[in-house]
Design a protein around this nucleic acid. Sequence first.
DNA 1: GCCATACTATTATGGTGCATAACAATGGAT
DNA 2: ATCCATTGTTATGCACCATAATAGTATGGC
Lengths: 155, 155
Amino acid sequence: MALPRRLPAEPRVEQTDLAPLDDKLGFWLRLAQQSGFDTLQRGLGPLGLTPGRLGVLLLVEANPDIRQALLAEALRIKPSNLTVLLAALEQEGLIRRDEEEGNRRANRLRLTEAGRALLRQGEEAEAAAERQLAARLRPADRAALLTALRRIAGG
Amino acid sequence: MALPRRLPAEPRVEQTDLAPLDDKLGFWLRLAQQSGFDTLQRGLGPLGLTPGRLGVLLLVEANPDIRQALLAEALRIKPSNLTVLLAALEQEGLIRRDEEEGNRRANRLRLTEAGRALLRQGEEAEAAAERQLAARLRPADRAALLTALRRIAGG
DNA sequence: GCCATACTATTATGGTGCATAACAATGGAT
DNA sequence: ATCCATTGTTATGCACCATAATAGTATGGC
C-alpha cells in the first residue's frame, strides 16, 4: 500500500506565523477600534468633525446646559482635553459656553443653530459608518459584542 | 382610597443622559480598547515594554529572520513606524538587525538572548492582563468577542 | 467676617499610535 | 545604462490621552 509520500518542497512563499497574536484580546481590540475610528473618520472628516467632536455635540444636545466637568465624565475624557475641544467648537460657532448664573466658575453648554445643523449631518454619517462596521455581524452578534465591550470597558 | 400623591421634587442630582452614546459601537470600541491598553500597559510598563514592543518581540520570535516589511504587515503598522520601534529595541540589545545576504536592502530580524528573556516575562504579564480583561466574560463570550472583533477589523 | 478647603476650568507639556510624503539605497529587468 | 520596484529611513502632523500647575470662584467652619 502506497504511503503518502512527503510532497516536494514547494516554492517558498514568505509566510508569517501570526499565531502569537491571533488569540490576544488586546491585539484585536486595537485593530477593531482602529477600523471603527477610520470608518467614522472617513465619514466625519468632510464635515470638519472627528469622533471626539461628534461625541461632544451628541451629548450637549441631549443634555442642554450641562457643565464641562460632567460632560467630560460622560465622554470619559479629561476635563483639560475637553477644554481644548470646546474652545475650537465655540470658535467655529457650533456651541455656546455661558457662565452659570450664581456660579461664575461653571460653564453651561448649549448647541447653536449651526451646531444642531452640523450634528444632524454628523449623525447621518455616523449611522452610515455604524452600519458599515456591523455589516458582517448578525444583529444578535452586534448586541453581544456591545455587551462584551461594555464589560471590558468597565461600564 | 388614598391615591399615591406626586412625590415632592427630590433634591436634584445632576444626571446625564448617555443614551446618544451607549449603543454606538465606535464609542465602546474606543473605551474597551483603552481599557485593554491600560491593563496591558500596567503589566508591561515595569518591564520597559509596551503593547507594541511586545507584539514585535512575539512575532520576531515566531518568525526568525523575518524582514521588516513583512513584520509591519503582520502587526498592521506602517513600516515607517516600525523602523522607530526596532531602532529602540536594537539599541537596548533586545533584537538584532542583520542585512540579508545578497540583498543589502532587507533586514533580517532576530531576538537576542536578552530579548528572549524579556519576552518570557512580557508573555507572563500579558497573560495576566488578558485574564483580567476577560474576567467578566464567560469563555464562550470571549470567543464570540474575538470573532466579532476580527470581523470588524476586517481580518 | 475670615480662612481653609473644594470645585471648575484653563494652560502647558509630554507621550501614544497612526498616517503621509520625501528620500536614499539597492536590486532586477530590459 | 536606464528605468522601475523594493526596502528602509526620516520628518512631520493629527487625534487622543495623561499629568501638573494655576486662577478664579464658591462653601462651610469658626
